[in-house]
């Protein structure tokens, strides 16, 4: 992403619905107490013919040129449902995905994306399909432009606007740490906690 939050890239269509985080990265691929080295395990059940030996499955979209260089994923509804594992986001990021366009997302997954510089773009199903169809015809010619600053996607001669919270937008644009941002309000938090201890003595231990 440039400083103004604009980037253009190849979009890979993976239009199945309900793609869960177990499918994005199976538990057995989350081997270490670390955020890196996960790209290998991305979509392991689908991407490899034999997950042990890692022979690529030629039918899987991310194994096909030029989609193997995709930075945008087009997906079906409820993408990232299931387990809260943040590894799903780390694996997508490390593999090179920077934005996912889908009709809806698992809610924990969407928050995890925003916390890791991956942009979840919610777009109606028909539009996702329109983009997917043109991308299939000419993936290199029909690239997608994401403009975070103006909260829009540009494709061919069309523009779609998407929603993202002010805080999340700023976090992504300016690469801010969410903790530092919240601690700017430490006084308010302390004040609330002191009051809460009086109001709800039973809630504090």
């Amino acid at each position: 992403m440039t400083n103004d939050g604009v980037f253009r890239g190849i979009a890979a269509p993976l239009l199945r619905i309900n793609i869960d985080t177990d499918a994005i990265i199976p538990s057995r691929e989350m081997k270490h107490v670390s955020k890196s080295g996960l790209a290998q395990g991305l979509f392991a059940n689908w991407r490899y013919l034999n997950p042990g030996a890692r022979d690529p499955n030629p039918d899987f979209v991310l194994n096909q040129a030029p989609f193997d260089r995709a930075s945008i994923l087009l997906a079906g509804a409820n993408f990232g449902c299931g387990s809260s594992r943040e590894h799903a986001v780390w694996a997508l990021r490390e593999w090179g995905i920077r934005a996912i366009i889908a009709p809806s997302f698992g809610s924990i997954f969407a928050s995890n994306c925003l916390n890791n510089g991956l942009l979840p773009v919610r777009l109606d199903e028909d539009s996702v399909e329109v983009i997917a169809a043109s991308v299939m015809e000419d993936p290199l010619g029909n690239q997608v432009t994401v403009d975070l600053g103006s909260r829009s996607i540009h494709f061919a001669d069309r523009t779609w606007y998407f929603e993202i919270g002010e805080r999340e937008q700023q976090m992504l644009l300016r690469g801010l740490s969410p903790i530092a941002l919240t601690l700017e309000s430490a006084d308010l938090i302390d004040e609330f906690e002191a009051g809460d201890a009086k109001r709800r003595p039973w809630a504090i231990r």
Partner: peptide
């Protein structure tokens, strides 16, 4: 349920 970055945020703040 939350992700691990959010858990870090909850613990820290």
């Amino acid at each position: 349920g939350i992700g691990s970055t959010e858990a870090e945020h909850a613990l820290a703040t």
